[in-house]
Computed example of a mutant assay.
Amino acid sequence: MKKIGMFAATTAVAALALSGCTTVHDTAPAGGSAGGDDAVGITFSDLSNPVWAELVQEAQSYGAEQGLSVTYVDAKNDAATQVTQIENFIQQGVSTIIVCAVDANALAGVTKRAQEAGIEVVGYTQVLENYDAQYLVDAYNTGYANGEAAAAWIDENFDADETVEWALMDLPRFPEIIDRANGIKDAIAELAPNAELVATAPALTAEDGVANAENFLQANPDLKVIATIGGGGAVGGNEGVKSAGVTDDESFGLFGIDATENEVQNIIDGDPEKSTISLGGGRAHGRTLIDITVDLLAGEAVEKDQFMPIEVIDASNAQEYYDEVFGD
């Protein structure tokens, strides 16, 4: 079984609350030129994810600083729509297409056509068949770090012979997120054998997280822990737990991934959320994807498979992290 220590992050993370997400788009471009050497097209599986919403905004603004005209579109979790979006980018003659796939298998043909047309293809989070570079999550170890933090909290707050019920917010439609959830489950099973998984439900948005937390607690009144695969579920879950009347910060633990601004503030405030995992965050990822694009267009040697950093943010470093990343 793979294990990790507490990896150090080298980049900053920020994410918008759902109410502050960027305006999303279908097949119509969000600004930028129609095509040319400076044109970059981005298609994302679902921009209701606040981290990804901020990513595309940062990529657009940072890209402009690098002389690139960046257009982004939202596939809204429809693979056929995403294929059409990429076809449109090819027809427009963009220099680079950045793809967060709805279904990577569905994109094999259209990404190959893009490359044959001389367009650089950059993948994000989902592994593509045809690409020039990709920026990926070490999915299993990210989940393991989350589960490791949850297990440490269980060990600190409960006796070893005391059964501790926990629930998982997952997102099983993506293979990488399945790996992330497996990492969470493996870590808790190994490091907190007295913990019992009693419920699972998918969560991408804060609304999902609120509903899941309320349903988990209604069905399992002895629940003590929720682990989530992303920041949307974590932020909503934190609110759902509080709305259910859980106010004692030592009686319940919620563990997230993404280290959004809301998540880190929850930890500082002593809310149910006890830790989150920083992977670099939306703004940093947007800049990294543009940096990769600039290097590809310049003909520089680019490592094809690059991975996001992993860092645990908890009460010991949340304020410092918040000041560094989100402070004025």
Rank of each mutant, 00 (worst) to 15 (best):
E129L: 09
L223H: 07
A201T: 06
N157R: 14
N130G: 04
G253C: 12
F326Y: 15
G63P: 00
A139D: 13
N77D: 14
D179N: 15
M308H: 06
E196G: 05
Q66S: 07
D37L: 05
A181V: 13
V13A: 13
D323I: 08
T276D: 06
G245A: 10
E190H: 03
I86Q: 09
L191G: 00
E324Y: 12
Q265K: 15
A187W: 04
K304I: 09
A213M: 11
C100E: 08
A301K: 09
N130E: 12
N77K: 11
A133N: 09
G230Y: 03
I310Q: 11
D132M: 05
A75C: 00
I178Y: 02
N77S: 15
A219I: 02
E303D: 11
V83Y: 03
T111A: 09
E190K: 07
V264N: 14
I154T: 09
G286A: 10
V121K: 03
F7W: 08
T10A: 10
G63H: 12
Q60F: 05
I267C: 09
A195K: 10
I154D: 05
A181N: 01
Y140I: 11
T96Q: 02
T81H: 00
E320H: 12
D74A: 05
S251N: 05
Q82R: 02
V24P: 01
K185M: 11
A189R: 06
G280Q: 08
